[in-house]
């Protein structure tokens, strides 16, 4: 398990990284490397050139700008996990990251890398959808901000243009009445989810005034269970309604068969995880 040869460049700034990406054909960005390097060791990926963005200070830092929590793309999972600011402003990230990989991997793996890689098994894409996050991308043509909703297009396929770099993740800070839930089923620590579901709810008394249900690893990419959201929005959640929502989620899933289970199992688990996360979120909103 040894990667093929490649050239290696350290980028010193966002501009430098963008320039190096432009200069080197088929170059790949290496962030934490815990998705890319294993693929390179298996020689499933053989990029001729890696551009390392670990040294770029402007990609780090976590702050609040207005009603947005701004997270530099190169924060490691553990930096986000251990941030009191994240805990206060958007605890969904804190709770979800606890279930990401293992402590060492979280020390290297970055939130930006997880989002940008486009792997349906990664946890953050569905979280971004549930949070209605915005992604800041910078490339040769400058900087743009795009909603996470619509960014994930397929397996290893995102709305990132050639030569672009994900630089920031912006998530709305928690408002009054908002609750979060997260449930993830996996075979063991360090495995991808059989199914995972981050949920955002906004409550008006006992009524769900808004809801977003993200789903992980039950389709070619992360997506939202929109039919279920539409069913639940504006209603008081009952067991029967949740059951109905679960059926809609099962219909919406299109997972691939692997050792984690059949498409049928994974779809059912997606519904189960979503239902658990919805209950948690409603409970969370009350507190």
């Amino acid at each position: 398990m040894i990667p093929s040869e490649f050239e290696y460049h350290k980028a010193t700034s966002i501009q430098d990284a963008i320039a190096k990406l432009a200069e080197n054909d088929e170059a790949k960005i290496i962030a934490g490397g815990h998705s890319l390097l294993p693929m390179m060791k298996l020689r499933f990926a053989e990029p001729p050139c890696l551009i390392d963005i670990n040294g770029i200070e402007e990609l780090r830092g976590i702050s609040v700008e207005g009603d947005m929590l701004v997270i530099g793309a190169m924060n490691t999972e553990n930096e986000v996990l251990n941030s009191p600011l994240v805990q206060e402003k958007c605890s969904l990230l804190t709770e979800a990251i606890k279930l990401v990989a293992d402590p060492q991997v979280r020390n290297r793996g970055t939130i930006g890398g997880d989002v940008a890689h486009g792997d349906p098994g990664n946890d953050h894409p569905a979280i971004m959808l549930a949070l209605d996050a915005e992604l800041v991308l910078e490339g040769p043509d400058g900087k743009r901000t795009t909603p996470a909703n619509g960014f994930f297009l397929g397996t290893y396929w995102t709305g990132m243009e050639e030569g672009e770099l994900l630089t920031q993740i912006r998530v709305p800070v928690r408002e009054q009445g908002v609750g979060y839930g997260y449930a993830k089923l996996k075979r063991k620590t360090g495995d991808y989810a059989v199914a995972g579901s981050p949920v955002y709810v906004k409550m008006n008394g006992d009524t769900v005034s808004d809801i977003r249900i993200g789903l992980t690893n039950v389709g070619p990419c992360a997506f939202r269970a929109e039919a279920a959201e539409n069913l639940l929005r504006g209603n008081v959640i009952t067991d029967d309604l949740l059951k109905e929502a679960g059926a809609l989620i099962i219909d919406a899933c299109d997972p691939a068969e692997d050792l984690r289970g059949s498409p049928e199992y994974k779809s059912h688990m997606a519904a189960e995880m979503a239902k658990r996360a919805i209950r948690q979120a409603i409970e969370d909103a009350r507190n």
């Binding site: 490397g33 815990h34 390392d52 670990n54 553990n78 060492q104």
Partner: peptide, 19 residues
């Protein structure tokens, strides 16, 4: 392969030496 790097535990099989 766990080692300590800059005060953090990392898996040295998935870190490039240049890093």
């Amino acid at each position: 392969c766990t080692v300590d790097m800059n005060g953090q535990s990392v898996k040295s099989c998935t870190v490039l030496a240049v890093q």
